[in-house]
Amino acid sequence: MLELSRITAGYERRAPVVRDVSLTVAPGEAVGLLGPSGCGKSTLARVAALLHRPYSGTVVVDGRAAHGWRHRAPREQRTAFGVVFQQPRLSADPRMRLADLIAEPLRATGRRDEAAARVDELAGRVGLSAELLRRRPHEVSDGQLQRACLARALVLRPRWLICDEMTAMLDASTTAALVAVVEDYRAESGAGLLTVGHDSVLLDRWCDRTARWEDLASGAG
């Protein structure tokens, strides 16, 4: 289970964007989080991925409460998540070739020897050719870069996937392709999904359950 209870978080203590929000995702479940832009749903997603420390509230991942965020979270807790962000341009280190981008989490966790095989396999899944893998982020399109970012999110075989507006910058066919990759991975691994967006048609078709921000947030405006 991924359990977020009574989370209050934001960037200014006096005016938190997330107020007293609770949300639970069961293993294997796909939950869509629907809300207008600026409402705080991305912040909640960052709290869930242990990237942003909330002012109050608890996050319990597979029965273990999170005590630290970012680098203070134990590595195996951090890497239980795969995160895909809204803007591929900003979520890729501009100096890394796509192949290195995808392999980086394996190298960072000391599993360098698996990298080549894993990158080949994932590149096939997300539809990146060997030629594209040799390019740097500024030499590929947003859609191609987002494919690489999804591959990077899957490379450590996470138990939880968090997609923060993953498809907001993409065209319909790339959106469909990436959603299919996520669903294939979930079918074989049983990973849970929290996907954040403002497109209710997409979220309703993609997810088992769609939570509306205004229903979740008791105090948020």
Partner: peptide, 25 residues
């Protein structure tokens, strides 16, 4: 930047984030 977030989720240590992503920048 989000790519630092991505590195944190990917299990990179503080040292690795500094040496591999921040210093080259």
């Amino acid at each position: 930047r989000p790519y630092i977030d991505a590195a944190v989720v990917g299990g990179a240590s503080r040292w690795r984030v500094t040496v591999r992503h921040l210093l080259p920048g």
